[in-house]
Amino acid sequence: MTETPRKPTAFRLDRIRVVDDPDIAHRPGDRPVVIAEPEELDLPAPVPKPRRGPRWANILVSALGILLSLGIGLAVDQLIRDLFQRAEWLGWFAVAVAAIGLVALVALAIREIGGLLRLRRITKIREAADDAARRDDRIAARASVRDLTALYSERADTAHGRAALELHASEIIDGRDLIGLSEHELLRPLDAAAQTLVLSAAKRVTLVTAISPRALVDLLFVLVTALRLIRQLGQLYGGRPGTLGFLRLARTVIAHLAVTGGMAAGDSLVQQILGHGIAARLSARLGEGVINGILTARVGIAAIDVCRPLPFIAEKPPAMADFIAELTKLNAGKGGKKPEV
Rank of each mutant, 00 (worst) to 15 (best):
A128H: 07
L190N: 01
V253I: 08
A255K: 15
R81Q: 15
L330K: 01
A141D: 05
P32D: 10
L223C: 02
L148N: 05
P54C: 09
A302D: 05
H184W: 07
P213W: 06
L41Q: 01
I294N: 00
P339S: 03
A36W: 00
P309D: 08
D23E: 04
R111S: 15
A150G: 14
A163P: 13
G336P: 06
G73K: 07
L286Y: 04
E171R: 12
V19M: 07
L68C: 11
N58F: 04
V33M: 01
D20N: 01
I173Y: 12
A325D: 13
I59Y: 11
R52F: 04
A314W: 00
E40F: 01
L282R: 01
R17G: 05
G53W: 10
Q195A: 10
L197Y: 07
V106E: 06
P213S: 12
A156M: 08
A319Y: 03
L249Y: 07
A321S: 12
V97S: 14
C307A: 15
R162M: 12
I80S: 07
L68N: 02
S69E: 13
H276C: 06
R12G: 05
G115V: 05
F246P: 00
W92F: 14
A150H: 12
K338N: 09
A194P: 02
L282P: 01
K124F: 12
I304K: 04
R126H: 08
R298G: 10
K337W: 01
L67F: 10
